[in-house]
Design a protein around this nucleic acid. Structure first.
Length: 580
RNA sequence: GGUCCAGUGGUGUAGUGGUUAACAUGCCUCCCUGUCACGGAGGAGAUCGCGAGUUCGAUCCUCGUCUGGACCGCCA
């Protein structure tokens, strides 16, 4: 087999040359003694013409047969502007059938009608579709640009173990039983976090890895159990220096992969402001529709919904939807249901029509409050006003979810706009009321802001972290932080998290021990490669940019994983299954 | 763990308490020299996801179950 050209690259300039092509039969159009064959390879499709002299050779040729075609490139009489090769065709002189194919269960074309489960079962056929190939090519391009950028900036790729130790705190681990040590388990890494920090202790200064990570949690359209992280760690750099390096990397990706120039530096939005204005720690800032705080207006309200709240942690906020005052009862109920799904107790719905605020809650408002409301919400005729009153964080997230809901309903975003930003100054800790303890919001090795360290003793909830997330169009692309490199501070952090000396020793002892031998100040970031590829290829699901993804119930329809194993295998691992 | 949606020829859909289960596409046979979603004629192909119940009778109604999807919880 000696192919001379790729199918998709033939143009008018190739006319009158002899070529040998290889590809799959995408379509056969038989006009009797004249037969057209669309021959597809990974570069595209070209039309092959076969006249009567070849009729015996191609008699049996059907879709998805693999052919080797030798012929002459001719200019077409009837051109096809839907094909890049549409100005030419190849007049076949010799056709060799390299392999036959059964009729495929799905149509191999961009607009296949197969549903996703069928596509996943026959993924190898689904991946023959040009659009799927294009997505995986684009994903590889993203990875390539990132790799080159990191290599050019002195980063070294180091591989870290897949079979490692279980680390508590965080997502559920996938466990792998040890045969050599019956009763003991490895865990698959949720991220190479601890290893990359040890590489900094080891003195590599700049590390990266295109790393497979595993989390045994339920899946979503934008979440898989195993996924790929571009994992990065640096020594001696500040938050700003790391962010600067990383946003330049993304700018390069956007330029080289999408041909788009994005503005540097990225906007930096403190967590608190992001929540207050957008109701999300990963806001889509392509559209405004910001939340407006009206807590002060109703500080002395007699309206039970507002007055029953705990003053130490409450927020009343409004979202104003233009031209939606005519929403039907059914629509309004739908918004309320939507808000409840995200934890709202209720939704106060008002309308601004004929320069008046209407709604069942209005009777609890004073003249003064109504006046202030009109002014502060900058109300215009036909505005719909949605108000949530709850604990600060709940109020924000509920309205933030509604904001995203209206983004879709009102189509407020240009899919070809890419709005990057950093969300910074995250809180270090989160208090969990049911466990009555603090949890690290990022992870227990995140460095607190220097000016907040004193607060670790007095008011841990107020401590901010040197942590940052890169956000694009409402998705978290990646997140990172500076890490604690001081043993005393790390000990204090563990204490705040409620660990005993013994627990620390047992869980993190090997890690902490490393820090006493000269640990550089370090910090890094990890990007969700799948998610970046999903957004840049305008895919609705991560599954579209992962070659062999899992379903929402974490199974693989192609291989039928996970599957039952032989009792003998279990015996070797000293595992007995519980009878159900 | 929860809420919601879907499951009918290979594929994608329609539909009905009693049908010869419809349509498109794909597949097979034949015709066709300028098609490119080729066209024309004919044909094969479905225990209506599975189980139980209601009923004289269930693909349709009820319950359960399985599978797929979206979301909430969860995802340091």
């Amino acid at each position: 087999m000696e192919r001379t050209h790729n199918n998709g690259e033939l143009r008018l300039s190739n006319v009158n040359t002899n070529v040998t092509l290889i590809g799959w039969v995408a379509k056969r159009r038989n006009l009797g003694s004249l037969v057209f064959i669309d021959l597809r390879d990974r570069t595209g499709i070209v039309q092959i013409v076969c006249d009567e002299t070849l009729s015996q050779q191609i008699k049996d040729v059907r879709n998805e047969y693999i052919l080797e075609v030798t012929g002459t490139v001719n200019e077409r009489k009837d051109k096809n502007d839907k094909l890049l090769t549409g100005e030419i065709e190849v007049k076949a002189l010799k056709i060799n059938i390299i392999n036959k194919a059964e009729t495929t269960p799905i149509i191999i074309a961009d607009d296949t009608d197969a549903l996703e489960d069928t596509r996943l079962k026959y993924r190898y056929l689904d991946l023959r579709r040009p659009i799927m190939q294009q997505k995986l090519f684009e994903r590889a391009h993203i990875t390539r640009v990132m790799r080159r950028y990191l290599e050019d900036n002195g980063f070294i790729e180091v591989e870290t173990p897949i079979l490692t130790a279980s680390t508590p705190e965080g997502a559920r681990d996938f466990l792998v039983p040890s045969r050599v040590h019956p009763g003991s388990f490895y865990a698959l890494p949720q991220s190479p976090q601890l290893f990359k920090q040890l590489l900094m202790v080891a003195g590599f200064e700049r590390y990266y890895q295109v790393a497979r990570c595993f989390r045994d949690e339920d899946l979503r359209a934008d979440r898989q159990t195993d996924f790929t992280q571009v994992d990065i760690e640096t020594s001696f750099l500040s938050e700003e220096q790391i962010q600067d390096l990383m946003e330049k990397m993304l700018a390069k990706v956007m330029k080289e992969v999408k041909g788009i120039d994005i503005k540097l530096p990225f906007i930096k939005l403190p967590y608190h402001e992001a929540m207050n204005r957008y109701g999300s720690d990963k806001p889509d800032i392509r559209f405004a529709l910001e939340l407006i705080d009206i807590t002060d207006i109703f500080s002395d309200s007699s309206f039970a919904v507002f007055s029953s709240l705990d003053n130490s942690d409450k927020a009343i906020k409004a979202l104003v939807i233009p031209n939606k005052a005519q929403a039907t009862r059914k629509e309004v109920d739908h918004y309320t249901e939507y808000a409840k799904k995200y934890g709202a107790k209720g939704l106060v719905v008002l309308k601004y029509v004929n320069a008046q605020i209407e709604g069942s809650a209005v009777k609890f408002f004073t003249e003064n409050q109504i006046e202030k409301l009109i002014k502060e919400l900058k109300l215009k005729e036909n505005d719909l006003i949605l108000i949530v009153a709850d604990k600060w964080e709940n109020t924000c997230t509920v309205l933030g979810s509604l904001r995203n809901y209206f983004k879709e309903e009102l189509q407020l975003c240009d899919p070809n706009e890419f709005a990057f930003l950093w969300v910074v100054d995250f809180p270090l800790l989160e208090f969990d009321a049911s466990d009555n303890r603090y949890y690290a919001k990022h992870h227990p090795f995140t460095r607190p802001k220097a000016e907040d360290i004193a607060l670790l003793d007095s008011d841990p909830s107020k401590v901010k972290a040197c942590a940052y997330d890169m956000v694009l169009n409402g998705f978290e692309l990646g997140g990172g932080s500076l890490r604690i490199y001081d043993q005393t501070l790390q000990a204090k952090m563990f204490k705040v998290l409620g660990f005993t000396e013994e627990q620390i020793k047992q869980r993190f002892g090997w890690f902490i021990e490393a820090f006493q031998y000269g640990t550089p100040p370090h910090g890094g970031v990890a990007f969700g490669l799948d998610r970046i590829a999903m957004i840049l290829t305008h895919s609705d699901s991560l599954r579209d940019v992962i070659a062999f993804p899992k379903t929402a119930s974490a199974s693989c329809l192609l291989t039928n994983a996970p599957s039952i194993v032989d009792v003998k295998q279990l015996d070797e691992l000293a595992i007995a299954l519980k009878n159900k």
